[in-house]
Simulated scan of single mutants.
Amino acid sequence: MTRLSQLTFSLLLGLIAMMGPSEQAKAQAFPEKPVRIIVQTAAGSSIDVAARILADNLTRRWNQQVIILNQPGAGGAIATRALASAPNDGYTLFFAASSVFVVLPELQKALAADVNSFVPIAFVGETPMAIAVSSKTPAKSLAELVALAKQTTGGLNVAVSTRGGLSHLSAEALRERAKMEMTFVHYPGTAQALTDVIADRVPVIVDSISAIVGPASGGQVRLLAVAGPSRLKSLPDIATASEALPGFEAMAWFALVAPKGTNADIVRQIGKDVDAVLQEPAVAKRLQELGAFPRPMSPEALQAFIEAQKKQWAPIVQRAGG
């Protein structure tokens, strides 16, 4: 090898060394340090519990600590801003509820660009909304509740958590579909709403089945219907809302997303690992006990799903004051 060739070869080696590992190699090595998952609710909420189930199992799979970072407030806006300002290296993720995508861009236009630019990673689970009443409310079915509301001057008061959230929007959709009068009583969270329904200060509540199933099993409230596409295997005696109101469905869901610009190979690697965790029988069972049902979905399919959900809920959001 000539002196010039040796010099050229050395320069090439130097350039390769400066370039460092390829993006694909980085994805294969991911993660090399702890990973943070932002959650938009306080510790102890059903969303938080589901996120911790995922985090615990990813910790074991990755041999790296996965840390939950609770950022509650402003209907998810605080958590949304936290992710938008995070590094796009895959080490900060967001366990986002459906309301972040279908409500926030309508209610807070300044957040629309951030939310729309998040990189979808994995669909974690979905949970049907549910309609329940206090134990002293006479209705024993959704059809009876609709009839009771129509017979009551001014309709019925309905407890919903978070103005503009999925609880509120589902109740608004129910009001429109059933043509029944309702007065929405807004609460900062589900726990406060349930407290008033259990005490019979408010007769009706619309919220996720994961929030209602516990009080219902304890006899504190009466579960009338779930707004999913079919009856739940865990609650076969509870009718779907569509049995009384054909076509009526309302589902909450949550997904894992990353900041804009996160490397595609890392996104796909995280997605594969999340899907693998969700397919573990013990994990699926724990989530189902919360009323959440995993459904594997590629990042591309998740993006299409999010867009479809935004179109479905946008008219309701706008009519509800979005």
Rank of each mutant, 00 (worst) to 15 (best):
A159W: 11
V317L: 07
L58Q: 02
S242K: 08
S45V: 06
S5E: 15
S230G: 09
A282Y: 03
A74Y: 13
P105G: 12
A250P: 06
G14N: 13
G218W: 05
L223D: 06
N70S: 11
I306T: 03
S208H: 12
A122W: 00
Q220A: 11
H168D: 03
L111W: 08
G271M: 03
S22W: 06
E126R: 12
V133A: 05
S5N: 09
R3Q: 12
A113L: 05
V133W: 00
Q318R: 15
V115C: 10
A159E: 09
E176S: 10
P120H: 11
F30A: 07
A122I: 01
F101Y: 14
K233F: 10
S170I: 02
S161K: 08
L111M: 02
A25L: 12
A301V: 07
K310M: 12
V204L: 06
E106Y: 11
P229D: 14
A191M: 13
A159P: 13
A199R: 15
P188S: 06
S242E: 05
D265R: 07
T127C: 08
A77F: 09
N116M: 12
F30L: 10
Q28G: 11
L302C: 08
P281E: 08
F94M: 11
G228F: 01
Q24N: 14
S217K: 13
P246Q: 12
A27S: 06
G20P: 06
N263C: 08
I121K: 04
F248G: 03
Q6G: 14
G271H: 00
S22T: 12
Q288H: 11
A79G: 15
N70H: 11
P229Y: 10
V213A: 12
W253T: 02
N157Y: 10
F254K: 02
G20H: 08
E280A: 12
Q312L: 15
A292L: 15
R201F: 09
A171V: 02
E144K: 11
L148V: 06
K33A: 12
A282S: 13
G154T: 09
A43K: 14
N263T: 09
